[in-house]
């Protein structure tokens, strides 16, 4: 292509752009489709949250027989690594709204780590050397749990 043609195109661009980006009936369709998608997704997430809240599962962690953590799994929409430093060593527990598992443990046998994923009410992992128990327990339907409790 000769250079001359290129220049001609450049000088034409303004009107060209204007012409191209006129609001066309099709645009409305696209915007509508995207909006509908957004609403559907939002509703989906909204109701999913509501449904799971109703039959909340709780994770309970005890160290030396004392409950050190009891919390609804729904609280861990963002996964959390919870480390427990006891007299006998350190255990790292992975907590998410989907599953709970012992990620690392200072113990020798690693039975707690090998237990793997805990998902359903009644599932549990035990680390005898660290005297730690992780359990999934059925929670009540109560809402409005406090963020912390003063004893």
């Amino acid at each position: 292509m000769p250079k001359k043609d290129g220049r001609l195109e450049a000088s034409d661009r303004k009107t060209d752009v204007q012409r191209r980006f006129r609001f066309l009936p099709g645009d409305l369709l696209i915007i509508l489709v995207i909006l509908v998608f957004c609403v559907v997704f939002w509703l989906g997430f909204f109701f999913q949250g509501k449904m799971t809240d109703k039959k909340a599962k709780y994770v309970r962690i005890t160290l030396d027989g004392q409950v050190i953590l009891e919390s609804a799994l729904t609280r861990f929409a963002e996964p959390v690594e919870y480390s427990v430093v006891g007299e006998h060593g350190t255990v790292v527990i992975y907590l998410s709204s989907e599953e709970v598992y012992v990620k690392e443990s200072s113990c020798e046998d690693q039975i707690c780590v090998k237990t793997g994923s805990l998902k359903h009410t009644g599932d549990g992992a035990v680390c005898l050397p660290n005297r730690l128990v992780v359990q999934i327990v059925g929670g009540s339907e109560e809402t409005g749990e406090p963020d912390a409790v003063s004893i």
């Binding site: 963002e78 919870y82 480390s83 427990v84 430093v85 006891g86 007299e87």
Partner: peptide, 14 residues
């Protein structure tokens, strides 16, 4: 933004 949580045996308590 992440959450980090842990329990430490100290001060004769958790």
């Amino acid at each position: 933004e992440t959450t980090k949580t842990g329990t430490i045996l100290a001060l004769d308590t958790f």
